[in-house]
Amino acid sequence: MSTVLEERPAAADAIQKFTATLMIRRFDPDVDTEPRWQEFSVEMLPTDRVLDALHQIKWEQDGSLTFRRSCAHGVCGSDAMRINGRNRLACKTLMKDLDIEKPVYVEAIKGLPLEKDLVVNMEPFFASFREVQPFLQASSKPDKERLQSVEQRARFDDTTKCILCAACTSSCPVFWTDGQYFGPAAIVNAHRFIFDSRDEASEVRLDILNDKEGVWRCRTTFNCTEACPRGIQVTQAIAEVKAAVLRGRP
């Protein structure tokens, strides 16, 4: 028993706490005309994520820091932000995986109207999502479920993973300069229904995306694929939609 007690402090020492510096791009529309960078210092555990750092700042240092988060476990898609120049989910990025020798830069995702600190107006993003009719459209009315083979389900499995965090769309350089572009997320969600064997409105969605601001604006820069926290092959999905538009069917 005594040996266990003696060993405990040693085990606690093994957990290395470290101090990290965060540079957060602040913006208060009531006070600021332009966003400004503010420096914070936080004490982190190796298991702490960027979200934990933001919590520590908000709860212990500056309660006015504003950001979105809901589930905090990479499912709800609320806390997409630009961390060290790359779009990621704050709740899925460990501080120790970043270069903590230098300050960690955290700012709001780009291309959407900045509201406060790390919060942007997501409405333009959701507007183009709604535009592609992201819901099942089927004329048959079966008593039970609509049947689908494993292969048919696998065809669009990748694009069902989308959590609408906007990390892809707000990393797209075409979207930055042209907010009218549907953006990768809307195309991914169209892909999810276009290639669904149970859905009957593929042609309508292909027609919607065969637009001046549709799939043809994609420049295959792969920013979206790199940004996706769910690992969706976004650029590939867009390419498959392009090919489907050319064929005129999924």
Binding site: Q133, V204, D207, I208, N210, D211, K212, G214, W216, R217, K242, V245, L246
Partner: peptide, 16 residues
């Protein structure tokens, strides 16, 4: 039902 807006889409042909 959605009403198609255009007859020709030049972006598609430009891409091809």
């Amino acid at each position: 039902a959605r009403v198609s807006r255009r007859s020709t889409n030049w972006e598609k042909w430009a891409w091809l």
